[in-house]
Design a protein around this nucleic acid. Structure first.
Length: 154
DNA sequence: GCCAACGTTGGC
DNA sequence: GCCAACGTTGGC
């Protein structure tokens, strides 16, 4: 089993939105970055655990845990001209963009803000804490995952 | 295939 | 709202 982190802006789609959906499950559509796409299409497996990260807000923070419930399949929102993330270069016969389904597992006992994450040497290799990082989906090492859960109660 | 211009992300 | 970092586009 692998571990991941996925970013979303809470004003657009936050963890509260996910919890409000049937089965607390949704498809993670709208990713239009090749690195992130490749991870969803090729690497994320059912049962993988995912941190839900709130970006572009105050404070940016890890707020909860999700689980992958469906592996990569074409992102149909790319086919629809009315969608915000419509891409005319993607079509059902040759889909360019992929998504996975994720289910809310639980909220963290507290939000763990980015500035705190940056303060731990144990997490200094995470792409999340490095300058200029814009990747919206990234793998998390097991030791990093476990460390983050260990500071949840502090 | 290079690289300048442009658009987006996301912390601050 | 600013702007640094980064990814993508497109002319050449």
């Amino acid at each position: 089993m692998a571990y991941w982190l996925m970013k979303s802006e809470p004003d657009v789609f936050g963890i509260e939105h996910l919890k409000a959906l049937p089965n607390q499950t949704d498809h993670w559509d709208g990713v239009r970055n090749y690195q992130a796409r490749n991870m969803m299409r090729d690497d994320m497996k059912v049962g993988d655990q995912v941190f839900f990260y709130h970006s572009n807000c105050k404070p940016p923070a890890i707020v909860g845990i999700m689980e992958v419930t469906k592996e990569g399949y074409p992102d149909h929102t790319a086919f629809d001209p009315d969608e915000k993330y419509y891409d005319p270069k993607s079509n059902p016969d040759n889909p360019r963009w992929y998504m996975v389904d994720v289910k809310h597992v639980r909220d963290l006992k507290r939000e763990i803000p980015l500035d705190e994450l940056k303060s731990y040497p144990e997490l200094s290799n995470m792409r999340l804490v490095q300058k200029g990082n814009r990747l919206s989906i990234m793998p998390i090492e097991k030791n990093e995952w476990d460390f983050i859960l260990s500071i949840e109660d502090q």
